[in-house]
Design a protein around this nucleic acid. Structure first.
Lengths: 328, 328
DNA sequence: TTGAAAGCGTTACCAC
DNA sequence: GTGGTAACGCTTTCAA
């Protein structure tokens, strides 16, 4: 910048202003500065800018996994919404583990993001402490946490499972099994399980059997494997309630391989309204969540928080809808 | 850092060294510094570090889409490999469009990344020009471009399609149709199509029919829709060669809904060895690509390029393997 | 093994 | 409309 200033016979300060299109610099000066900068091959140093202004232009985002159509859609929508405001996303993937989230949050905060977006409402105590100390807009999404860290854009996983159980009861099912990851890592899965157990109890159904498809994340192959291993005795249930559509699809394929008829011998339900649920034959009964809307709303909440210094916590429930398919 | 120094009664310089695990700081000092830093809720400022050292610690990466199990796997592996070296990924998604890639590359370069990783070998002329001017390690992955910009870690899409056509010919299929996105955006898809056309010609098969599933990206629903619309006259082909496994699964489900038997009435093949291909009933014949290995190799090539200032372009072909399933 | 000084490139603030 | 000064938080370099 000093060199450019020398070239046009002005101070670095004026060059700085000219390059940022500051109105107080005369148009002619601005033009001269810009052309001199181009001629000299000057490249603006945004690292120095971020350092000096203490504004990184980053929003840090953690997702359990990037390979998930719903999280990917939220990411896309959020990314679009933020880029309109000149903000870039710094993405981290927790692999469904709060300890990994803690580590990631540390790394991400070191980049001085202007806000932090976390997926889910379960965090380590250390993560919570770090965020309490730091005055930084925080948004939790994809959940409605009991003790939010800041803003929230999500939905009730418990309620979503109630929709499913209600639907199964209405269609005459009573002996439910819930297929999900082993206890521990996937907290949204655990909340869904609890939701199913309680809903079943409230309808007076027998205890829900828990089928463990292995450590999180569980997907198609895990659903398929656990059902194959179980064999035809899976027919002692009359509904498999799965933690997600991929798991449900895996179960469906395995059940079909066993020669059982869905939904006659067995109902199967999923979660998330993934493409596979809409396309599979039969289509899988599922719950639609507003992945794109979550991303958009998070971007809006963030905009408000950054502009107005909005501090009152916003809680947005985007809800969820049962999508009846052909597997129930 | 000054505060931490004060807390342990040492100079900021020692704290700096301690936090970076500098060997010249005694182990006990290091421990004291770290615990004081934790107690004070100190967060290291890597913006300042990037500024001072003139190294951003970023590697810019573009992917066509983040919602793709293979790209996601490459991203994961790359991310892991780089974080071992203290590098973070700055991710951009091109949505399969080179113009979007051009825009993204501009935004990413402004962050001063230490290297750039692009998916695919097709770029706008403007992108190529920008990268020529800038001395920056560039790696293209998931392709073997004719005119590489720098290093390459990929495989031949043409060769992969030859495997498929060879397999179909060996199992007695002759009337092939290729299902993919409309011309234009998805260049890897276009290369695969050309590969099928040429392979079919070399085996003396009738001309391959091109089935247009709509603008890129195409997925399950697009495969399903185009086959549903076509109806039972799809049986005039004896093999549907699909641009990807999700498209193949969509076609499979639609064909099953039409009451046709796969593979008896019709063979179906996919690409990418996605989970859905391994789990679906029947399993889909596909081509496995080394998504994880691509990510690992890119990380290694990058490490070499950044350490040794390696300039000779490395070209790594990770190959691809036919995975016969039950749909052919 | 530890510390002091200087400076990375930019911009906020105030002065003219 | 333009310029001077200081400072952002860290690390390089040299000295003790």
């Amino acid at each position: 910048m000093r060199d450019v200033a020398k070239a046009v016979g002005m101070s670095p300060m004026t060059v700085s202003r000219a390059l940022r299109d500051d109105e107080t610099v005369s148009a002619s000066t601005r033009a001269r500065v810009r052309s001199a900068a181009r001629d000299l091959g000057y490249v603006y140093d945004s690292t120095a800018q971020a350092f000096r202004t203490q504004k990184s232009g980053f929003v840090a985002v953690t997702l359990p996994s990037v390979n998930n159509a719903n999280f990917a859609e939220t990411f896309r929508a959020l990314s679009t919404g933020l880029s309109a405001r000149g903000l870039q996303i710094l993405l981290g993937s927790t692999n469904y583990r709060v300890e990994k989230e803690e580590e990631l949050v540390g790394q991400l905060l070191a980049r001085n993001p202007e806000a932090l977006v976390l997926t889910g409402g379960h965090h380590t105590e250390s993560t919570r402490a770090v965020l309490r100390d730091r005055k930084l807009p925080v948004i939790e999404m994809w959940d409605l946490p009991d003790a939010p860290l800041g803003h929230v854009v999500g939905f009730s996983n418990t309620r979503a499972m109630q929709h499913i159980v209600e639907h199964l009861v209405a269609t005459g099912r009573r002996r439910l099994a819930f297929v999900s990851a082993s206890d521990g890592a996937d907290m949204r899965g655990a909340v869904r399980r609890q939701g199913v157990i309680e809903a079943a109890r409230s309808y007076g159904l027998p205890d829900v059997e828990i089928i463990d498809a292995g450590p999180a994340p569980v997907s198609m192959r895990h659903g398929a494997r656990v059902i194959s291993e179980m064999g035809r005795k899976v027919a002692r249930f009359d509904a498999l309630v799965c933690v997600s559509d991929p798991v449900a699809f895996g179960c469906l394929a395995a059940v079909q391989r066993l020669g059982l008829q869905v939904p006659w011998d067995l109902a199967i339900t999923g979660f998330g309204n993934f493409e596979v649920a809409q396309v599979s034959h039969p289509r899988i009964t599922t719950v639609a969540v507003q992945a794109e809307q979550i991303g958009q709303q998070v971007a809006q909440v963030l905009a408000a928080a950054l502009d107005d210094g909005m501090t009152a916590a916003t809680i947005i429930d985007v809800g969820s809808q049962l999508v009846p398919g052909e597997t129930s």
